[in-house]
Design a protein around this nucleic acid. Structure first.
Length: 405
DNA sequence: AGTCCACAGGAAGGGCAGGCGA
DNA sequence: TCGCCTGCCCTTCCTGTGGACT
Protein backbone atom coordinates (compact mmCIF):
# COMPACT_ATOMS: atom_id res chain seq x y z
CA UNK A 1 0.00 0.00 0.00
CA UNK A 2 2.76 2.36 1.05
CA UNK A 3 4.51 1.48 -2.10
CA UNK A 4 1.48 2.37 -4.20
CA UNK A 5 1.06 5.66 -2.38
CA UNK A 6 4.74 6.30 -2.83
CA UNK A 7 4.46 5.73 -6.55
CA UNK A 8 1.42 7.95 -6.86
CA UNK A 9 3.18 10.70 -4.99
CA UNK A 10 6.20 10.44 -7.18
CA UNK A 11 4.08 10.67 -10.32
CA UNK A 12 2.34 13.71 -8.98
CA UNK A 13 5.65 15.21 -8.02
CA UNK A 14 6.98 14.52 -11.49
CA UNK A 15 4.03 16.23 -13.05
CA UNK A 16 4.34 19.24 -10.80
CA UNK A 17 8.07 19.41 -11.38
CA UNK A 18 7.54 19.23 -15.08
CA UNK A 19 5.50 22.41 -14.71
CA UNK A 20 8.44 24.10 -13.01
CA UNK A 21 11.19 22.76 -15.22
CA UNK A 22 9.63 22.70 -18.65
CA UNK A 23 9.60 26.00 -20.39
CA UNK A 24 6.08 27.36 -20.68
CA UNK A 25 4.70 28.04 -24.12
CA UNK A 26 3.61 31.52 -23.17
CA UNK A 27 5.90 34.33 -22.17
CA UNK A 28 3.25 37.03 -21.89
CA UNK A 29 -0.22 35.82 -22.82
CA UNK A 30 -1.72 39.26 -22.25
CA UNK A 31 -0.28 40.33 -25.59
CA UNK A 32 -2.95 38.23 -27.27
CA UNK A 33 -5.84 39.80 -25.42
CA UNK A 34 -8.04 42.42 -27.07
CA UNK A 35 -7.40 44.70 -24.12
CA UNK A 36 -3.67 44.75 -24.82
CA UNK A 37 -2.35 47.96 -26.29
CA UNK A 38 0.78 47.36 -28.34
CA UNK A 39 3.51 49.99 -28.61
CA UNK A 40 3.22 49.93 -32.36
CA UNK A 41 -0.04 49.75 -34.28
CA UNK A 42 0.59 48.19 -37.68
CA UNK A 43 -0.98 49.31 -40.94
CA UNK A 44 -2.97 52.14 -39.38
CA UNK A 45 -0.56 55.08 -39.70
CA UNK A 46 -2.90 57.08 -41.95
CA UNK A 47 -5.86 56.51 -39.68
CA UNK A 48 -3.88 57.55 -36.61
CA UNK A 49 -2.64 60.71 -38.29
CA UNK A 50 -6.11 61.57 -39.51
CA UNK A 51 -7.66 61.16 -36.10
CA UNK A 52 -4.90 63.21 -34.47
CA UNK A 53 -5.49 65.94 -37.05
CA UNK A 54 -9.23 65.92 -36.24
CA UNK A 55 -9.08 65.68 -32.44
CA UNK A 56 -5.75 67.46 -31.89
CA UNK A 57 -7.23 71.01 -31.81
CA UNK A 58 -8.77 70.11 -28.46
CA UNK A 59 -5.31 70.83 -27.00
CA UNK A 60 -5.53 74.40 -28.33
CA UNK A 61 -8.88 74.75 -26.57
CA UNK A 62 -10.69 74.61 -29.89
CA UNK A 63 -13.68 72.34 -30.23
CA UNK A 64 -12.83 69.50 -32.63
CA UNK A 65 -15.35 68.19 -35.14
CA UNK A 66 -17.41 65.18 -34.21
CA UNK A 67 -16.09 62.06 -35.93
CA UNK A 68 -17.80 59.02 -37.26
CA UNK A 69 -15.54 55.98 -37.66
CA UNK A 70 -16.67 53.06 -39.72
CA UNK A 71 -15.10 49.66 -40.40
CA UNK A 72 -15.66 45.92 -39.97
CA UNK A 73 -15.10 43.96 -36.75
CA UNK A 74 -11.47 43.74 -35.69
CA UNK A 75 -10.17 46.41 -38.06
CA UNK A 76 -8.56 48.44 -35.29
CA UNK A 77 -11.16 51.20 -34.90
CA UNK A 78 -11.34 51.00 -31.13
CA UNK A 79 -7.62 50.40 -30.76
CA UNK A 80 -6.71 53.45 -32.83
CA UNK A 81 -9.31 55.66 -31.15
CA UNK A 82 -8.19 54.68 -27.67
CA UNK A 83 -4.54 55.04 -28.65
CA UNK A 84 -5.02 58.55 -30.04
CA UNK A 85 -7.21 59.77 -27.19
CA UNK A 86 -4.75 58.35 -24.65
CA UNK A 87 -1.92 60.25 -26.34
CA UNK A 88 -4.01 63.42 -26.30
CA UNK A 89 -4.71 62.92 -22.62
CA UNK A 90 -1.03 62.35 -21.86
CA UNK A 91 -0.05 65.52 -23.68
CA UNK A 92 -2.79 67.46 -21.93
CA UNK A 93 -1.59 66.22 -18.55
CA UNK A 94 1.95 67.32 -19.38
CA UNK A 95 0.70 70.88 -19.81
CA UNK A 96 -1.79 70.69 -16.94
CA UNK A 97 -4.64 71.07 -19.35
CA UNK A 98 -7.85 69.45 -18.05
CA UNK A 99 -9.49 67.07 -20.49
CA UNK A 100 -11.74 64.09 -19.97
CA UNK A 101 -12.23 61.08 -22.20
CA UNK A 102 -15.38 59.03 -21.71
CA UNK A 103 -15.55 55.63 -23.38
CA UNK A 104 -18.77 53.63 -23.70
CA UNK A 105 -19.26 50.33 -25.45
CA UNK A 106 -22.91 50.62 -26.43
CA UNK A 107 -23.24 46.89 -26.91
CA UNK A 108 -22.64 46.24 -23.24
CA UNK A 109 -25.80 45.01 -21.53
CA UNK A 110 -27.28 47.29 -18.89
CA UNK A 111 -25.39 50.28 -20.25
CA UNK A 112 -27.11 51.57 -23.32
CA UNK A 113 -30.41 49.69 -23.36
CA UNK A 114 -32.21 52.94 -22.72
CA UNK A 115 -31.56 56.67 -22.86
CA UNK A 116 -31.77 56.77 -19.09
CA UNK A 117 -29.20 54.01 -18.59
CA UNK A 118 -26.62 55.49 -20.91
CA UNK A 119 -26.88 58.91 -19.28
CA UNK A 120 -26.64 57.29 -15.85
CA UNK A 121 -23.55 55.39 -16.98
CA UNK A 122 -21.94 58.58 -18.33
CA UNK A 123 -22.64 60.30 -15.03
CA UNK A 124 -20.96 57.37 -13.22
CA UNK A 125 -17.91 57.75 -15.48
CA UNK A 126 -17.72 61.36 -14.38
CA UNK A 127 -17.97 60.31 -10.74
CA UNK A 128 -21.62 61.11 -10.17
CA UNK A 129 -23.89 58.35 -8.90
CA UNK A 130 -27.32 58.14 -10.51
CA UNK A 131 -29.87 55.49 -9.42
CA UNK A 132 -30.61 52.71 -11.90
CA UNK A 133 -34.29 53.67 -12.13
CA UNK A 134 -36.62 56.04 -10.41
CA UNK A 135 -35.70 59.45 -11.78
CA UNK A 136 -37.44 61.20 -14.67
CA UNK A 137 -35.19 61.11 -17.76
CA UNK A 138 -35.18 64.92 -17.84
CA UNK A 139 -33.64 64.91 -14.40
CA UNK A 140 -30.85 62.54 -15.52
CA UNK A 141 -30.17 64.85 -18.48
CA UNK A 142 -30.00 67.80 -16.10
CA UNK A 143 -27.52 66.02 -13.84
CA UNK A 144 -25.42 64.93 -16.82
CA UNK A 145 -25.17 68.44 -18.26
CA UNK A 146 -24.51 69.87 -14.81
CA UNK A 147 -21.64 67.48 -14.36
CA UNK A 148 -20.35 68.27 -17.83
CA UNK A 149 -20.16 71.99 -17.11
CA UNK A 150 -18.79 71.30 -13.63
CA UNK A 151 -15.75 69.74 -15.31
CA UNK A 152 -13.80 72.72 -16.44
CA UNK A 153 -12.47 71.51 -19.77
CA UNK A 154 -13.31 69.72 -22.98
CA UNK A 155 -14.81 66.23 -23.03
CA UNK A 156 -14.37 63.62 -25.75
CA UNK A 157 -17.12 61.03 -25.69
CA UNK A 158 -16.37 57.79 -27.52
CA UNK A 159 -19.49 55.80 -28.38
CA UNK A 160 -18.28 52.41 -29.54
CA UNK A 161 -20.78 50.24 -31.44
CA UNK A 162 -22.99 53.31 -31.81
CA UNK A 163 -25.24 51.38 -34.21
CA UNK A 164 -26.39 49.17 -31.32
CA UNK A 165 -27.32 52.31 -29.41
CA UNK A 166 -29.37 53.76 -32.27
CA UNK A 167 -31.15 50.47 -32.88
CA UNK A 168 -32.10 50.13 -29.24
CA UNK A 169 -33.11 53.64 -28.33
CA UNK A 170 -33.28 55.68 -31.52
CA UNK A 171 -31.43 58.91 -32.18
CA UNK A 172 -32.99 61.24 -29.64
CA UNK A 173 -30.08 60.98 -27.23
CA UNK A 174 -27.58 61.57 -30.03
CA UNK A 175 -29.62 64.56 -31.13
CA UNK A 176 -29.45 66.03 -27.63
CA UNK A 177 -25.75 65.29 -27.30
CA UNK A 178 -24.81 66.75 -30.68
CA UNK A 179 -26.91 69.86 -29.91
CA UNK A 180 -25.20 70.49 -26.61
CA UNK A 181 -22.15 71.80 -28.46
CA UNK A 182 -24.36 74.68 -29.66
CA UNK A 183 -25.37 75.37 -26.10
CA UNK A 184 -21.87 76.02 -24.89
CA UNK A 185 -20.90 72.57 -23.60
CA UNK A 186 -17.47 71.45 -24.75
CA UNK A 187 -18.36 67.95 -25.92
CA UNK A 188 -16.95 66.11 -28.92
CA UNK A 189 -18.47 62.83 -30.01
CA UNK A 190 -16.54 60.01 -31.62
CA UNK A 191 -18.97 57.40 -32.96
CA UNK A 192 -17.61 53.98 -33.88
CA UNK A 193 -19.60 51.43 -35.83
CA UNK A 194 -19.14 48.38 -37.98
CA UNK A 195 -22.45 48.90 -39.70
CA UNK A 196 -23.09 51.85 -41.98
CA UNK A 197 -26.73 51.03 -42.68
CA UNK A 198 -27.86 52.29 -39.28
CA UNK A 199 -27.34 55.92 -40.37
CA UNK A 200 -30.58 55.67 -42.33
CA UNK A 201 -32.42 55.72 -39.00
CA UNK A 202 -30.76 58.97 -38.01
CA UNK A 203 -32.36 62.37 -38.17
CA UNK A 204 -30.68 64.38 -40.95
CA UNK A 205 -29.36 66.93 -38.44
CA UNK A 206 -27.88 64.22 -36.21
CA UNK A 207 -26.35 62.55 -39.23
CA UNK A 208 -24.65 65.68 -40.49
CA UNK A 209 -23.55 66.72 -37.02
CA UNK A 210 -22.15 63.31 -36.15
CA UNK A 211 -20.37 62.96 -39.47
CA UNK A 212 -18.62 66.32 -39.55
CA UNK A 213 -15.62 64.10 -40.17
CA UNK A 214 -15.77 60.52 -41.38
CA UNK A 215 -13.16 57.82 -41.36
CA UNK A 216 -13.30 54.38 -42.89
CA UNK A 217 -11.12 51.53 -41.67
CA UNK A 218 -10.54 48.92 -44.38
CA UNK A 219 -10.28 45.25 -43.37
CA UNK A 220 -6.84 43.73 -42.93
CA UNK A 221 -5.78 41.27 -45.59
CA UNK A 222 -4.21 37.92 -44.71
CA UNK A 223 -0.67 39.28 -45.14
CA UNK A 224 -1.33 42.24 -42.81
CA UNK A 225 -2.99 39.98 -40.25
CA UNK A 226 0.05 37.74 -40.44
CA UNK A 227 2.38 40.67 -39.68
CA UNK A 228 0.17 41.81 -36.78
CA UNK A 229 0.05 38.31 -35.33
CA UNK A 230 3.79 37.86 -35.77
CA UNK A 231 4.40 41.01 -33.77
CA UNK A 232 2.13 39.91 -30.97
CA UNK A 233 3.40 36.33 -31.03
CA UNK A 234 6.94 37.60 -30.45
CA UNK A 235 5.79 39.14 -27.17
CA UNK A 236 3.35 36.41 -26.23
CA UNK A 237 5.25 33.17 -26.87
CA UNK A 238 8.59 31.88 -25.74
CA UNK A 239 11.23 31.42 -28.40
CA UNK A 240 10.72 28.37 -30.63
CA UNK A 241 7.27 27.59 -29.28
CA UNK A 242 5.39 28.60 -32.38
CA UNK A 243 6.15 28.33 -36.07
CA UNK A 244 5.33 30.86 -38.73
CA UNK A 245 3.04 28.41 -40.49
CA UNK A 246 0.77 28.31 -37.43
CA UNK A 247 0.57 32.09 -37.33
CA UNK A 248 -0.10 32.10 -41.04
CA UNK A 249 -2.97 29.67 -40.58
CA UNK A 250 -4.61 31.86 -37.91
CA UNK A 251 -4.22 34.87 -40.20
CA UNK A 252 -5.72 33.02 -43.15
CA UNK A 253 -8.73 31.80 -41.14
CA UNK A 254 -9.40 35.27 -39.77
CA UNK A 255 -8.94 36.84 -43.19
CA UNK A 256 -11.77 34.63 -44.42
CA UNK A 257 -13.91 36.22 -41.71
CA UNK A 258 -13.59 39.72 -43.18
CA UNK A 259 -10.07 40.43 -41.90
CA UNK A 260 -10.99 40.33 -38.25
CA UNK A 261 -7.83 40.81 -36.16
CA UNK A 262 -9.71 40.06 -32.95
CA UNK A 263 -10.66 36.62 -34.22
CA UNK A 264 -7.06 36.02 -35.32
CA UNK A 265 -5.73 36.87 -31.85
CA UNK A 266 -8.33 34.68 -30.17
CA UNK A 267 -7.38 31.76 -32.39
CA UNK A 268 -3.71 32.19 -31.61
CA UNK A 269 -4.28 32.50 -27.88
CA UNK A 270 -6.59 29.50 -27.60
CA UNK A 271 -4.32 27.40 -29.82
CA UNK A 272 -1.49 28.17 -27.41
CA UNK A 273 -3.63 27.32 -24.41
CA UNK A 274 -4.59 23.98 -25.92
CA UNK A 275 -0.98 23.11 -26.70
CA UNK A 276 0.02 24.04 -23.16
CA UNK A 277 -2.78 22.01 -21.61
CA UNK A 278 -1.81 18.97 -23.70
CA UNK A 279 1.77 19.39 -22.52
CA UNK A 280 2.88 19.65 -26.16
CA UNK A 281 6.26 21.18 -26.74
CA UNK A 282 5.05 23.76 -29.23
CA UNK A 283 1.94 25.13 -30.94
CA UNK A 284 1.06 23.23 -34.11
CA UNK A 285 -1.52 23.71 -36.86
CA UNK A 286 -3.77 21.05 -35.33
CA UNK A 287 -4.09 23.24 -32.23
CA UNK A 288 -5.47 26.01 -34.42
CA UNK A 289 -8.17 23.67 -35.74
CA UNK A 290 -9.05 22.70 -32.19
CA UNK A 291 -9.03 26.35 -31.15
CA UNK A 292 -11.48 27.24 -33.89
CA UNK A 293 -13.86 24.58 -32.68
CA UNK A 294 -13.41 25.52 -29.03
CA UNK A 295 -14.18 29.19 -29.67
CA UNK A 296 -17.43 28.29 -31.40
CA UNK A 297 -18.39 25.83 -28.68
CA UNK A 298 -17.60 28.27 -25.86
CA UNK A 299 -19.66 31.00 -27.45
CA UNK A 300 -22.64 28.74 -27.96
CA UNK A 301 -22.59 26.88 -24.67
CA UNK A 302 -22.20 30.13 -22.75
CA UNK A 303 -25.32 31.42 -24.48
CA UNK A 304 -27.09 28.12 -23.94
CA UNK A 305 -26.61 28.52 -20.21
CA UNK A 306 -27.40 32.20 -19.84
CA UNK A 307 -30.32 32.83 -22.21
CA UNK A 308 -33.82 33.29 -20.76
CA UNK A 309 -35.95 30.14 -20.71
CA UNK A 310 -38.02 30.80 -23.84
CA UNK A 311 -34.95 31.81 -25.85
CA UNK A 312 -33.28 28.59 -24.73
CA UNK A 313 -36.29 26.64 -25.90
CA UNK A 314 -36.32 28.39 -29.27
CA UNK A 315 -32.61 27.69 -29.72
CA UNK A 316 -33.19 24.09 -28.68
CA UNK A 317 -36.02 23.80 -31.20
CA UNK A 318 -33.85 25.17 -33.99
CA UNK A 319 -30.90 22.89 -33.18
CA UNK A 320 -33.20 19.91 -32.95
CA UNK A 321 -34.88 20.61 -36.30
CA UNK A 322 -31.53 21.27 -37.96
CA UNK A 323 -30.35 17.79 -37.09
CA UNK A 324 -32.30 16.43 -40.03
CA UNK A 325 -31.97 19.26 -42.53
CA UNK A 326 -29.88 22.27 -43.41
CA UNK A 327 -32.47 25.01 -43.07
CA UNK A 328 -35.70 25.64 -41.19
CA UNK A 329 -38.34 28.35 -41.52
CA UNK A 330 -39.89 30.50 -38.79
CA UNK A 331 -43.24 28.72 -39.09
CA UNK A 332 -41.71 25.28 -38.52
CA UNK A 333 -39.79 26.57 -35.50
CA UNK A 334 -42.97 28.09 -34.08
CA UNK A 335 -44.93 24.84 -34.46
CA UNK A 336 -42.28 22.64 -32.88
CA UNK A 337 -41.66 25.19 -30.13
CA UNK A 338 -45.34 25.14 -29.18
CA UNK A 339 -45.26 21.34 -29.11
CA UNK A 340 -42.26 21.39 -26.75
CA UNK A 341 -43.96 24.00 -24.56
CA UNK A 342 -46.87 21.61 -24.13
CA UNK A 343 -44.46 18.85 -23.11
CA UNK A 344 -42.98 20.89 -20.29
CA UNK A 345 -46.22 22.68 -19.40
CA UNK A 346 -44.99 26.10 -20.40
CA UNK A 347 -47.29 28.75 -21.82
CA UNK A 348 -45.97 29.45 -25.32
CA UNK A 349 -45.12 32.98 -26.40
CA UNK A 350 -46.79 34.51 -29.44
CA UNK A 351 -45.41 34.33 -32.95
CA UNK A 352 -44.50 38.01 -32.77
CA UNK A 353 -42.28 37.43 -29.76
CA UNK A 354 -40.71 34.29 -31.24
CA UNK A 355 -39.87 36.31 -34.33
CA UNK A 356 -37.95 38.73 -32.10
CA UNK A 357 -36.22 35.91 -30.24
CA UNK A 358 -34.99 34.47 -33.54
CA UNK A 359 -33.64 37.91 -34.44
CA UNK A 360 -31.87 38.06 -31.09
CA UNK A 361 -30.31 34.62 -31.60
CA UNK A 362 -29.15 35.80 -35.02
CA UNK A 363 -27.65 38.96 -33.55
CA UNK A 364 -25.81 36.88 -30.95
CA UNK A 365 -24.33 34.88 -33.81
CA UNK A 366 -25.88 31.64 -32.56
CA UNK A 367 -27.85 31.03 -35.74
CA UNK A 368 -27.93 32.54 -39.20
CA UNK A 369 -31.35 33.93 -40.03
CA UNK A 370 -31.97 35.30 -43.49
CA UNK A 371 -35.24 36.91 -44.53
CA UNK A 372 -36.35 35.35 -47.79
CA UNK A 373 -39.45 35.44 -49.92
CA UNK A 374 -41.01 32.26 -51.16
CA UNK A 375 -43.33 33.96 -53.57
CA UNK A 376 -46.93 33.16 -52.98
CA UNK A 377 -45.83 30.94 -50.09
CA UNK A 378 -44.96 34.03 -48.16
CA UNK A 379 -42.07 35.82 -46.62
CA UNK A 380 -40.17 34.16 -43.82
CA UNK A 381 -36.79 33.65 -42.26
CA UNK A 382 -34.56 30.83 -43.36
CA UNK A 383 -32.58 29.70 -40.33
CA UNK A 384 -29.33 27.76 -40.53
CA UNK A 385 -26.24 27.02 -38.44
CA UNK A 386 -22.58 27.60 -39.09
CA UNK A 387 -21.14 25.21 -36.52
CA UNK A 388 -20.06 21.59 -36.74
CA UNK A 389 -22.38 18.71 -35.91
CA UNK A 390 -20.29 17.94 -32.87
CA UNK A 391 -20.84 21.40 -31.39
CA UNK A 392 -24.51 21.21 -32.29
CA UNK A 393 -24.83 17.97 -30.30
CA UNK A 394 -22.94 19.31 -27.31
CA UNK A 395 -25.06 22.46 -27.14
CA UNK A 396 -28.22 20.40 -27.57
CA UNK A 397 -27.32 18.27 -24.60
CA UNK A 398 -26.58 21.35 -22.46
CA UNK A 399 -29.92 22.86 -23.43
CA UNK A 400 -31.68 19.56 -22.85
CA UNK A 401 -30.44 19.31 -19.30
CA UNK A 402 -31.24 22.99 -18.66
CA UNK A 403 -34.78 22.68 -19.96
CA UNK A 404 -36.03 19.20 -19.26
CA UNK A 405 -34.28 18.10 -16.06
C1' DA B 1 -51.19 43.01 -63.73
C1' DG B 2 -53.23 41.56 -59.80
C1' DT B 3 -53.60 38.31 -56.04
C1' DC B 4 -52.04 36.03 -52.23
C1' DC B 5 -49.15 33.93 -48.78
C1' DA B 6 -46.52 33.79 -44.43
C1' DC B 7 -44.48 36.04 -42.23
C1' DA B 8 -41.29 40.56 -40.72
C1' DG B 9 -41.36 44.12 -37.95
C1' DG B 10 -43.35 48.81 -36.17
C1' DA B 11 -46.41 50.95 -32.74
C1' DA B 12 -48.93 51.09 -28.72
C1' DG B 13 -49.84 49.63 -24.48
C1' DG B 14 -50.46 46.28 -20.29
C1' DG B 15 -48.59 44.46 -16.14
C1' DC B 16 -45.19 43.82 -12.97
C1' DA B 17 -40.91 44.97 -10.38
C1' DG B 18 -37.65 48.14 -8.55
C1' DG B 19 -36.10 52.56 -7.00
C1' DC B 20 -36.51 57.50 -5.77
C1' DG B 21 -38.09 61.49 -3.26
C1' DA B 22 -41.46 64.05 -0.64
C1' DT C 1 -45.69 55.04 2.91
C1' DC C 2 -47.24 56.41 -1.45
C1' DG C 3 -47.16 58.39 -5.89
C1' DC C 4 -44.35 58.62 -9.67
C1' DC C 5 -41.03 57.11 -12.95
C1' DT C 6 -38.45 53.71 -15.56
C1' DG C 7 -37.08 49.02 -17.20
C1' DC C 8 -38.40 44.80 -18.98
C1' DC C 9 -41.05 41.35 -21.14
C1' DC C 10 -44.77 40.49 -23.39
C1' DT C 11 -49.33 40.89 -26.31
C1' DT C 12 -52.34 42.83 -29.72
C1' DC C 13 -53.04 45.07 -33.79
C1' DC C 14 -51.50 46.48 -37.76
C1' DT C 15 -48.99 47.55 -42.25
C1' DG C 16 -45.52 46.18 -45.43
C1' DT C 17 -43.18 43.02 -48.50
C1' DG C 18 -41.04 39.89 -52.38
C1' DG C 19 -41.99 36.91 -55.54
C1' DA C 20 -44.71 32.62 -57.11
C1' DC C 21 -48.94 31.89 -58.96
C1' DT C 22 -53.16 32.94 -61.76
Amino acid sequence: MDQVVGMEQRTLEDILESFVNSQSIFKNKKALSINYYPDRICFRDNEIQNLVRILGPVLKNEKPSNVFIYGGTGTGKTLVTKYVTNQIKKTAEKYNFPIQILYVNCKMKKVSDTEYRLLAYLCELMGLHVPATGLPTDEVYRRFFNRLSYFNGPTILILDEIDALVRKIGDELLYNLTRCGDEGYDLTIVGISNDLSFTQYLDARVKSSLSEEEMIFPPYNAEQLFEILKDRAKIAFNEGKIDECVIRKCAALAAQEHGDARRALDLLRVAGEIAERNNDSKVEEIHVDLAEEKLDLDRMSEAARTLPKHSKLVLYTILKLLKNKEKVLTGEVQKHYEYLCKQISLRPLTQRRISDIISELDMLGLVNALVISKGRYGRTREISLSVTEDIQNKVLSILHSELFL
